[in-house]
Every structure is written in structure tokens, then in C-alpha cells.
Amino acid sequence: MNEETEALVQAVADACERHPSTTDSSGGARFNGELWSALEQMGVTLLSVDEGSGGSGGDVQMTASVLAVLGEHSATVPYAETALLAGWMLAACGAPIPAGPLAAAVAGERFVLERDGEGWRIDGELSRVPWARHAAALVVLVGEHVVVVDRAMLDVSAGANLAGEPRDGVRLRGVVVVDAVRILPEGTEVTPEAFLARCALARAASISGAARRALTLSIKYAGEREQFGRTLKNFQAVQQHLAETAGEVLVCTAAAESAALHIDRDPRNIWPVAAASVAVRNAAGLIARLSHQVHGAIGFTDEHDLRLSTTRLWAWRDEAGSEPSWARRVGAEAVLAGPADLWEKIVG
């Protein structure tokens, strides 16, 4: 991490401390408008979008570093959806990027986009769209088209993941738009596969931050809690738990950073993201289990901050493709590489 990224990470961490995210009475994640405004003022909400398209001209690595900080603070803002997905798609087709938080999705079979006079008619449904209810607009990849739909045109049904973050159903019935559909240029890097890879990278980076917070809380608790006349950190079994957790946190950090680096170098190379996804998702479950073992029953209560991190570890590891699906992708890539090129593919 260079000095510029370190300064950015510290600024984002300070903003998270000034504007902590909270939950509602049911444990759901409240959209943190104050934090979002602070991130906008810092110019990081479109960090990986080039300046000519209205962004800050950063790269995916810097964006992943910000995601790790937000994950560490359990920040309730749609940063990945805006900075890494929606902004990326709109910039690729030369479309203006709406102000405010954005949601992003890839159209499935139940989504139809067709010409309607001078405009376009949209009929379709999308499931589990992150932060749709709080977005100023929804950006959808439909084949070779990128569609921007204002929030007022969306019929949103609220849903949530295990951490209480919005994962909403979206319906569009006969919605007609005129200037909100753009065609992607030939040879574009914006594809459903690349979208999924960026989603997976976002979850990996966020997991690395949540994992770091789980470790920090575990170390703090082990140093404060006394049992049988001594603190937990003096028990060998607890020391082993903490050491193993620290090792898995390092795996998450290294894997996410490596995947971000390779997306910057070659956006069409999905292998590093697949490998990182397998490593990070496997580590996430282990980190959550060890952290709760250190904390005991108190770690599961609503009053304890550990649950904010571990519920996100459990939720994020099952989003943007499952661990088995990414493992199959790693295996397929290894087979295609063959004996002669496999080692170079792994270490490269």
C-alpha cells in the first residue's frame, strides 16, 4: 500500500468513526446518509472511475482498500455498488453518472428491454438487489445495453441478508425511458462475467475488513475477561485460537489485494478473483467460528459488536457466487492450463 492509499484509508476510517453506522430495532442495517455524504465530499464514491467520466481517477486496488475499511466498520452504505459496479458500467458506455448512491444488477431471463417508439420499454424482475430501496437510481446490464432507471420508477420489495443489509426485489412493469439506455462499445470489458467478478472482489475486500475487526475484538476481549483467576489470553487454547484467526485474516487481506491488483492489470482474467474468492470464503467461516469461541455466548448477543462483523462474514461469503462455484472455476482453469503452464499460472 503506497502513501496515497494509506492516507485515503485513514481518511475513510476517520469518517467511519465520526459517522458510525447503526441498526434499527429489528437488527436491520440503516442507510448511513451522513457517512455517504462524507465519502462524497472526499471524492471516493466514484474512486475507480476515470476523471473524464466524472470519477476520481483511482484504480480497483484503492477501491478495494476503501471497501476493507468500510467492512471493518460495518458501514451501511452501497459503496461497492456505486464505485465498483454502477459507475464502471456507465463510464464504459459514456453515460452520465447520477448523483447519490447507486444500485447495480445484471438482467436475467425475467427482464425484457425493447424499443417503444422513440424510447425503450422495460418489463422485468430482479431479485436480491443490494441497497435498491436507498439508491438514487438502478443501473442494469441488459445484454449489450446499460440501462439507468430512476428510483421513483422502481417497485421495490424489501429483503435483507443475514447481516440485515438490504437485498431487495425489484419489479419494472411497462416502464418507458428515453435517454436512459446506452449501447456498450465493441470489445468492452463490461460483461456479466466481469460484473460477477467485481462483485466477488467487493465481497472479498469487505470480508477482509470484517475479519480484521473480529480479530481485534477477540484480542481485546481475551485481554479483559478473567476466568479461574487469570485473563483468557493466558490460556494456551485461547492463544491458539487467536493465532489461527490472525493467520486467516492475513489470508483474506492478501487474497483480496491480489485479486484487485490483477483486475487492474487484466480485467478479463477471472482466475485471480476465483482463487481469492475460494480462499477468503473458506477463511471467513473459520474466523467467525474462532471469534465466537473466544467470546463465548456473549458474542451472539445483540448488544455485542462482534455479531456485526460475523453476520457479515457469513452473509458475504454466500453472495456473488458460492464458494463451491468459484472452486469449480479454479479447477476448470487449472485443467485448461495443463501440466506445462499450471505452475506459472499459480505463482504468476
Rank of each mutant, 00 (worst) to 15 (best):
Trp36Glu: 02
Asn234Pro: 00
Leu141Gln: 05
Ile97Thr: 09
Ala334Thr: 06
Leu154Gly: 04
Val139Gly: 08
Ala210Trp: 05
Gln10Cys: 05
Asn282Asp: 13
Met42His: 02
Asp59Tyr: 09
Ala297Asn: 08
Val129Gly: 08
Asn282Ser: 14
Pro96Phe: 10
Leu126Pro: 04
Ser25Thr: 14
Glu4Ser: 14
Glu224Met: 15
Ser74Leu: 04
Val335Lys: 11
Arg30Lys: 10
Ala200Asn: 00
Ile298Arg: 03
Gly159Cys: 13
Arg307Pro: 02
Val347Met: 07
Glu72Gln: 11
Ala7Ser: 10
Arg212Ser: 15
Gly71Ile: 06
Ala152Lys: 05
Gly124Ala: 14
Ala256Pro: 12
Val147Asn: 02
Val142Glu: 06
Ala275Gln: 10
Leu8Asp: 09
Leu162His: 12
Pro272Arg: 13
Val129Ile: 14
Val347Trp: 08
Glu248Asn: 14
Val178Ala: 12
Ala297Thr: 10
Val148Phe: 00
Asp59Ala: 11
Arg328Leu: 08
Trp314Met: 05
Met1Lys: 13
Ala132Ile: 10
Phe31Glu: 03
Gly55Phe: 09
Val66Ser: 07
Gly285Met: 01
Thr245Trp: 01
His292Gln: 13
Ala158Trp: 03
Asp168Leu: 12
Phe195Gly: 00
Ile219Tyr: 03
Ala194Pro: 00
Gly321Leu: 02
Val190Ile: 15
Leu113His: 08
Glu344Cys: 01
